[in-house]
Amino acid sequence: MRPSFHPEGLYAESKSSAESKPNKISQMWHLNGKCPEDTIPVRRTKREDLLRASSTKRFGKKKHRTIPQPQSTEPELFNVNGHQHAIAYVEGDKYYGAKATINVWEPKIQQPNEFSLSQLWILGGSFGQDLNSIEAGWQVSPDLYGDNHTRLFTYWTSDAYQATGCYNLLCSGFIQINNEIAMGASIFPISGYGGSQYDISILVWKDPREGNWWMQFGNDYVLGYWPSFLFSYLADSASMIEWGGEVVNSEADGEHTSTQMGSGHFPDEGFGKASYFRNIQIVDGSNKLRAPNGVSTFTEQSNCYDVQNGNNGDWGNYFYFGGPGKNPNCP
């Protein structure tokens, strides 16, 4: 089980500057061994995991409508169920994949039912009940995992989070083929404020022959695929790509949450202090990785979480994003 084709230009990324040279990153469970050939690692679901969920039916699922809708000008349409975002996005074309390199942090979470994540979204359809979405990145989610560790994750839905889809391998859908990387497993080391930076690269692309959506982690690990039959719109192509951060703001006592996004610092602090996405790319109809055209940014409340994009020779299209949540300007 391997993809028929990889996108062209996959390893053309520049590594000439010190900031572009990634530090080695791994997963905690590797300290205890590895899985044999012809098996895959699956994170064990325990009784406590199910008890933390609002219901067994909703275990491993996102709440409805957690996708930002940048084309809308009405802020109240975004903060559905208290979800807030700081993203870069492209729309208006047919997309067949996306790639990004994301530095890894361990943001602090205020309430157990809140989360903080950094991910890419592959989107098809409208933002109504038929939205198709493939998502991958890192997250901190005490409600899902029972701790505050930063974990690699995937998600998918074909009906705007209503009945289909789930995180990782908690339902059928994503088919894993790799025995070295575990979905939902913690990542280490993580970036330090003013210290060493650690990042991960994620690529999701549509196999032009078979039509399945594949995921690759770093340069070495093809993790698995989402079969095309799971989707309606994404059976053909995506109509929007988003990269960035998302948090849940439960707004306890009417005050904004102090749950952090990214590093917990605003993007203007820059490298080594703020969270970033670099070398963001899309896969076009010729199965080529290329820089996206017309990248826009969006955030609901820039005084709580913000995003700033740019472009240079080493990082291509990039952006810094994130924030502390509650602060004197975000009460």
Rank of each mutant, 00 (worst) to 15 (best):
Y318H: 09
Y161N: 15
I102M: 03
S118Y: 00
G60A: 13
V42A: 05
Y233P: 08
F174I: 01
K94N: 11
G262D: 00
F217Q: 01
E180I: 03
K61G: 08
H85E: 06
N312W: 02
I122Q: 03
N309W: 10
I87N: 02
P36N: 13
T45K: 07
K46L: 14
Q139C: 04
G60Y: 09
A274S: 15
D220A: 07
E251L: 15
P189Q: 05
S191G: 05
A274L: 03
E37R: 15
D284A: 09
R47G: 07
I109H: 09
C330E: 12
S172I: 00
I87L: 08
F153Q: 02
V42E: 07
E210N: 11
W213M: 02
V42L: 09
H64I: 13
G194W: 05
D93G: 00
Y225I: 02
M1I: 05
E135I: 08
N79L: 10
N148W: 02
D253A: 14
D159W: 09
D147F: 07
F153D: 00
G97Y: 01
E76P: 01
Y161E: 14
S141Y: 08
E269K: 15
H256D: 11
R47P: 02
W156T: 01
S17A: 05
F271P: 04
R2H: 10
Q111M: 13
E269S: 06
Y96C: 00
F298E: 06
L131H: 09
S237T: 09
A182G: 14
F229V: 08
A18S: 07
T257Y: 06
A136R: 06
V283A: 00
Y221S: 07
P142I: 08
A136G: 12
C35K: 12
S186V: 07
S239E: 10
G294H: 13
V140I: 11
S263G: 04
P75D: 11
L152R: 03
M28H: 14
G313A: 08
Y96I: 01
V247K: 03
I134A: 03
A291P: 08
N303M: 13
Y161P: 02
A98P: 01
K15Q: 02
K99P: 05
G195S: 10
E242R: 02
V80Y: 09
P267F: 04
F277P: 00
Q111L: 12
S201Y: 02
V295D: 13
T299I: 08
F266K: 15
Q129P: 07
N309T: 12
Q197D: 04
L77G: 10
G33Y: 11
S72D: 12
Q69N: 10
L117W: 01
Q111H: 14
F78I: 05
D253V: 15
H256L: 13
L144T: 10
W138A: 00
S158A: 15
S54P: 10
C330V: 14
I87F: 03
L170M: 10
S133E: 14
Q260C: 02
S186D: 13
S228N: 10
Q162R: 15
E300R: 05
A88D: 08
D147A: 12
V222C: 01
G125S: 12
E269R: 15
I187H: 06
G146I: 08
H64S: 14
V222Q: 00
C304Q: 03
Q27L: 04
H85N: 03
W121E: 08
R209T: 14
E269P: 05
P68T: 01
L131W: 06
E48L: 11
A235R: 15
